[in-house]
Simulated scan of single mutants.
Amino acid sequence: MSIQLGKIGYLNVLPIYHPLESGLITNDFQIQSGPPAALNNLMDDGKLDISAASSIEYARHPEKYYLVPNIAIGSRGPVQSVLLLSRYPVEELQEKTILVSSQTHTSAALLSVLQNELWKIETGYTTGNATATLEKGERPDAILAIGDEALNLRFHPDYPHRIDLGEAWRELTGLPFIFGVWIVQRESWEASKKTLMDAVSKLIEAKDWGVKNIQQMCTLAANESCLSDKEMCSYFNGLVYDLAKDEIDGLTLFYSHLKKNGLINAIPELHFIP
């Protein structure tokens, strides 16, 4: 059985997927890459066995998935790749409009939580491609940019106010924020438990290798980016790839805020693979 594995198409998961894609860790994965929103849809449609997914995807359909333990993508403060880029101070965005990347689900939900709970503002939203919009000469009031696009746009001269959503979450809660988790289809698990367990072990082995060799990953990622080795290492060093107690506490609290703000119907229990 070939395992269909989803991969977020951003540099921040390079430490996890490079060992698999380069053959450093032998595996039988068929890897499909895409933005978080696309992977969420593929998992929801049952087209992937295991995938990185937005943390909100698990909350929306907990009956469909098991969480993979000991692996996530998040931050314990500034994340650098989930940014609200604004022409105005955040408190002056009241009743203005934010362009939100169409690639994100979790970051858009986090933005809504922060607006309601931390900044106490209400705004309008449009969805689209920030880079294409800026290249056309348009200048939205503010932009929610994620992933590699956020890294590339973070010093845009027309957007002097940069709010890091990972840091804003820490300001609100004092906890890490988990943007993405790895989930397994329950149907796939029931059909092929041993194969899926072996696959999960390979995935976690790859994460451990990547974290142990993070300096090498920085250099490799910088070669594919406009960032220098030093900037890329600063970025990677701010990320967390584990799902330990503090990260689980942060994830659970995020789900509580989603429920409070009407973004999910119920707070899900966290069910890890048996």
Rank of each mutant, 00 (worst) to 15 (best):
L84A: 05
R87V: 02
D141P: 03
Q32W: 09
I178A: 05
A244T: 10
E269P: 04
G77L: 14
V79H: 05
D141V: 13
S228P: 06
D208Y: 00
K207H: 08
A150E: 01
L39I: 06
E167K: 15
I98P: 00
Q30K: 15
K64C: 02
G77F: 10
E21M: 10
G74K: 01
E187N: 12
P35L: 14
E231T: 09
F177C: 06
N27E: 07
L5N: 05
E57K: 07
D44T: 12
N261F: 06
A130Q: 12
W169T: 05
E269A: 12
K7I: 14
R139S: 05
E205D: 09
Y65W: 14
P89C: 10
L239E: 00
E190A: 13
A222M: 05
F177Y: 15
S54E: 01
R60G: 03
Y88N: 06
H271Y: 03
L144N: 03
A53Y: 04
I264M: 11
G210M: 04
P36F: 07
K120N: 14
N40I: 04
N129Y: 04
A145N: 08
I8S: 02
G124L: 13
A108H: 14
R60F: 07
E224H: 09
Q32M: 07
R170N: 08
A199T: 02
L153K: 15
I31V: 14
D49G: 07
D164W: 04
N237R: 10
V211F: 09
R139E: 08
L263Y: 03
D208F: 00
L175M: 13
M1P: 03
Y65T: 02
L67W: 11
K212H: 15
T195P: 01
D208V: 00
M232V: 12
Y159I: 06
I8L: 08
F155S: 10
T126E: 15
S256A: 14
R162I: 06
K64L: 07
L111Q: 11
D45I: 15
P36Q: 10
L84I: 04
V200G: 02
I31N: 05
Y88M: 11
E57I: 02
E224F: 09
I143E: 01
D148N: 10
N41V: 11
G166T: 14
L93E: 11
W189A: 09
Y159C: 08
V200K: 01
L220G: 02
L227F: 04
I56L: 13
I16G: 00
G124R: 12
Y65H: 02
A130N: 07
K245F: 05
A244Y: 07
S102R: 13
Q185C: 10
I50Q: 02
S107V: 01
K47H: 14
R76W: 12
G180S: 12
S234N: 13
D198M: 11
D242A: 03
L153V: 15
L151H: 03
R76L: 09
G166M: 10
L253E: 09
R139C: 03
T133K: 14
